[in-house]
Design a protein around this nucleic acid. Structure first.
Lengths: 339, 339
DNA sequence: TTGTAAGCGTTATCAC
DNA sequence: GTGATAACGCTTACAA
């Protein structure tokens, strides 16, 4: 049975108030008192109960990070940075996996959950723009959206310029002379913001180069996984004329696509150049190494933490839209000369 | 200001007790009462405060999963399975990153932290056997060790048979005719249990085949990362005679090692066969795909959750040692004939 | 500077 | 079956 504040007070022959002051490192406590209390704490092996403290103060010191899948490298890298950035300002992070479950996302957002355990939420959603907008009862909890814009300006969010990032990737493929440029990751049926924006960037880069987008060249991918990338690329390779480049909406899709190209007896980048988005470490060691558009997860994490922390202090803050930088990283998968 | 139980009680003209009963879906409540209460809850948009509930019941419904680095694929795969297994039995999981910080680990283990926020801990430690044993004040919190044995039997743990897993990997290399078999991941200076055991398995497989271990062939690796694998392999490739196989203590090390072999102008598996441990998805798509010893993270997660849940129910349970199965997965990186 | 006591929002123990 | 009421362990006005 752990010792309580009251136990310590009795043992040290002082009031609970004094013990509390000592524990909180707070205001004026005489040296004699402090010494007595500290000793009592030691001897009773007292540790404050964080739950009781929370009930009283209303602060848990915990943030939730909600992602679709923690084992997707981009999300685990993001989680790493979020955990570190949060620790920097005294918060701990709980990770929640929605697993592509819209219902679970809704639950979290509307606070029909045990959500009140958190002081704030960082949310990397799959919900569509429409779903976000239709949310009748937005949670009163400080919320920062990651990777998805809500176009209503109701929430803080931090994300890259998806249109521009996709544009840059495709422009790079064009710059190395590719003309039959396919894409994996479009989701025409489910209007998530990110795929839409990347599709837009893809098409605008093509058009700007005088290339008319070919419907067959744009392949959907449900989960942005290696397996989906593999399957989609297999489909693309059967087309006539065969694409000479593939722009994948995520590095993971690209890893799958690369393997599919090899398994078809073709080479990357000579037969098919491949580029992704995310810049996961895996792509720096793969063979060939993967060209990509780098997202700065550290920047994203720090901004998101800063926003949510600010909103916890001051709930009425005006929502802010932070655009994270991105950068093209040219590696072997789009460098024919190098091999 | 969120509505409280008291608000609901007043609004519905019943006692708090009755409301609590309805909310908990608990015992006998008359239909009339229940209807009134339910309606009041709806109208006031009442949601129970989990913190207050926790203070009263002593249960948070939360588990902590403590890992060195969440963005290491093995750990994020484990985290995924732990989160899912926990959800299955009504727990949520908070992920803590120790980042190779022994002090942080100690803090968690001794409960000098806000640890009491959790009902239990799943701990994948870096601490050495000695450190574990020396812990004067073991936490009173239900604790399950992952991937590390403590040889004192003081804690539950679930782990594979590391000696055997390493043995199997090396025996496989021998079976395909390799004789100059190097290893990456030994940590002679820091006696963590896992590296020691894997080194033991490595050496015993060699000796059993009549091969005397070569000191130069065993390379340390601080972090089991791609970068460490790359560097260590570079070193190995300069040796004379050059190793014709490398056993890596993790798949991530293996990914780095493979890249180093290629960058040296050699091929896998013809010049150097490579095998890892973990079976991360990355290795199934890499080129060549990576032979490995598969750890069943789902099994490990389920067992760990079952143990910790049982211990939460019954704290005095005798510690149990669960050995998770492992299985050799032969892929291209050790299949010369296939390429 | 230190002590007293009133909650924070639940659940659980009593009676009725 | 339902209703008061006392904890759970802490922080913080308010007093002294």
């Amino acid at each position: 049975m752990p010792a309580t504040l009251r136990d310590v007070a009795e043992y040290a022959q002082v009031s609970m108030r004094t013990v509390s002051n000592v524990v909180s490192g707070y205001t004026h406590v005489s040296e004699r008192m402090r010494a007595r209390v500290v000793q009592a704490i030691e001897e009773l092996d007292y540790r404050p109960n964080p739950v009781a403290r929370t009930l009283r103060t209303g602060r848990t010191g915990m943030l939730a990070l909600v992602v679709p899948e923690i084992d997707v490298p981009y999300f685990s890298a993001l989680a790493r940075d979020v955990i570190n950035a949060a620790a920097e300002v005294g918060y701990r992070v709980m990770i929640d996996q929605t697993g592509h479950d819209h219902e679970r996302e809704r639950e979290l957002l509307t606070g029909n959950d045990r959500t009140m355990l958190f002081d704030g939420i960082l949310f990397s959603p799959l919900v569509t723009k429409a779903e976000l907008l239709e949310m009748e009862t937005p949670t009163r909890m400080p919320l920062v959206l990651l990777g998805e814009h809500d176009f209503d300006g109701r929430y803080d969010h931090v994300a890259i310029d998806n249109v521009r990032a996709a544009y840059d990737a495709v422009a790079h493929l064009i710059s190395i002379g590719r003309t039959r440029i396919a894409a994996i990751g479009a989701q025409p049926l489910e209007p998530y913001a990110t795929p839409q924006q990347r599709t837009e960037g893809y098409e605008s880069a093509l058009r700007e180069a005088g290339i008319e987008p070919v419907a067959d060249y744009a392949r959907p991918a449900a989960h942005y996984s290696r397996a989906d990338g593999y399957t989609a690329a297999q489909g693309l390779l059967t087309l006539d004329p065969r694409p000479d480049a593939i722009f994948c909406f995520s590095d993971l899709l690209a890893m799958g696509a690369m393997r599919a190209v090899f398994d078809a007896g073709l080479t990357v980048p000579d037969d098919v150049a491949i580029i992704g988005i995310d810049d996961i470490e895996e792509g720096r060691y793969s063979r060939p190494s993967l060209s990509t558009v780098s997202l700065d997860t550290t920047f994203i994490a720090e901004q998101a933490i800063a926003r949510v922390a600010a909103r916890i202090e001051t709930p009425v803050l005006r929502p802010e839209q932070v655009v994270a930088p991105h950068a093209l990283r040219v590696r072997e998968s789009t460098s024919p000369s190098a091999r």
